[in-house]
Structures are given as C-alpha cells and as structure tokens.
Design a protein around this nucleic acid. Structure first.
Lengths: 152, 152
DNA sequence: TATTGTTATACTCTATAACTATA
DNA sequence: TATAGTTATAGAGTATAACAATA
C-alpha cells in the first residue's frame, strides 16, 4: 500500500510516527508492572510533591478532577500510594508508599533502557542536538488559548 | 507543583511533550472539518490507493478490521468517500469522492499552517536536522516483535 | 459562593469474538 | 479452510454534570 507523500515534509507527522515507536516500547517496558507511562508519570509527580491533592495532580497532568480521581484509585488499588488526611477536610494528601518507592525505581530503570534502545543509533552529540531542537518547538497561538473545558 | 527531574533526560519523554503540542494544534486546525488528524491520514491513504479495501487500509493504519470499519463508516457518512464493488464479492473498493478531494486539499492547507507554527522558531537548517535525527530513532527489538493481536 | 472529592453517565478509540458470505 | 466485511460487546481514557461536605 502506497503511503502518499502529502505528509512527508511535516514535522508534526514525523513526530507522530516517532511518538508511536517510543510509546509502544515504553508500554511494553512497563507492562510487567501493570502501569502505563502516563501512570508512572503520575507516580513521579506524587513522589516529587508528597502530600499534594488530586486536583493539583490532575492539573499537572492536564486532566480534570474526575480523571485524576480514577487515576489515583488505580494507584491506590495497586498499593503504590495512599490517601492521607489533607490540609483541610475536603482535601486528600497523596503519598507514595514504601513499596511504591521500590516499584518506581524499577520502572524508571526499565524506562531508561527503553529510551536507550530508542536512541541507539544516535551519537551523544546527535542526541543532545535532537533534545535541544525538540525544546525549540513551540506551542502555537491557537493551542495556547487553552482548551475549553469546564473543569481544570 | 514540582515536575521532578526523573524524566528530564529521556528522549521519549521529550517526544511525548512535543507530540502533545503538535497534536493539539493539528486537532484544532482540522476541527472545523469534523475530522481528526488520524482520519485525514486515512483519507490520504485512500486517495493514494484508489480502490483499496478496508483491511488493507486498516493494516496501513495499524488498526484491525473492526476499527477500520468504523473509520470508513465515518468517512462515508461525511460524504468524503464511497464504497464501490471490489475485486471480488467479499471486498469493498474505497474511493475518494469529488467533494472529498476538495476537502482534503483544504485540510492539508490547514495542517501545513499548523506545522509551520510548530516549527516557527527553527531555521531551515535546524528543521532539516531535526527531521533527519527523528528518522534515526528506531523501533527497538522488543517492540518489533509485533503486538499480540488476533486480527491485523 | 467557591473548592474538593465523588459518582453517574457518555463519548472516542481500540480490541476480541462471533457471524455471514464469499473464496 | 481462509478471508472480507460486519456486528455486538468490552475496556481504556477522557469529559460533562451534578451532588455532598467543607471552606
């Protein structure tokens, strides 16, 4: 099946293809732990911000309260984090559990291995250049206006 | 909220962030046409392969027959393509309709504008370097084994 | 009034499984 | 037997809307 060349020169299309490769391997790397890359990111945010509440976590992940709720439920069910009493009676304080700390360390190892595989054909200099150029891509005006959601 | 530095050096994480920016603007650019970037890609594949069947389309998009079916239904409902009799009685031949051609051209214009916004801070040389480096990222062994699906 | 958590509901995308009609 | 399309169903992931408790 022919691909068609309409998208060939587009940066966004190349990033889409690259992203598919990266996310697939990252998923496989984390699958034994029953978590997706997005859930590991949530776990890392909680570790970096002990005692944060669900709403703040959701904002950091660009999802609303309801979605943050579901995410936290999964991490609690997995025994990785717990909800403790928060700064007021409305709020939960999220904390990584000791077992969660161990798991996070293992998962980060697997993720770094995956990342090494992804960039295996790059020299150190090329890798640095790529990182720098990716950082120069910018959020266009249209997208910067913010999505129109009710919640956060 | 602190970000935590565990993912900072990872190529895959940087690509994830960049992808989010790119896909959001691309979605906004195509929203007036009622199609997502993925559906435009499907449309371009059909245009590049007139008379292709749904299964082949699905394979090119890495989705199974059932998902390809739904996708084609949407494009048919939008009046962009049609199903014609295929090479045998089991098969549909997918064809872009004249109206679809027009829409595709407009959507490609909007998508290219979005792509220009994304790379607006890059010189032509930087842009070329970025494209070349992204092409050097490779599908790791683990992911190359192929996903374990029943279908395509 | 505003905020936090929660629940119910729905929509998109994708998958699996089973059915049918062809081949 | 194998393949193409179809349908029903289910599971992530996300969103909206409403409610209770608290601020």
């Amino acid at each position: 099946m022919k691909q068609g060349s309409d998208l060939d020169g587009l940066l966004g299309y190349r990033i889409e293809l690259t992203h598919l490769i990266a996310i697939e391997d990252a998923r496989l790397a984390l699958a034994p732990y029953g978590l997706t890359p997005a859930k590991l990111t949530a776990l890392l945010l909680i570790r970096a911000n002990p005692g944060c509440d669900q709403t703040a976590l959701g904002k950091a992940l660009s999802v609303n309260r309801s979605s943050a709720m579901k995410l936290v439920n999964v991490l609690v069910d997995r025994g990785l984090i717990e909800r403790r009493p928060g700064r007021d009676l409305r709020t939960n304080a999220l904390h990584l559990l000791p077992g969660g700390e161990e798991r996070v360390a293992e998962m980060l190892d697997r993720l770094r291995e995956s990342d090494r595989r992804l960039g295996a054909d790059l020299t150190a200099a090329e890798r640095a250049t790529l990182m720098a150029l990716l950082k120069k891509l910018r959020k266009p005006r249209a997208a910067r206006r913010g999505a129109t959601t009710t919640d956060g």
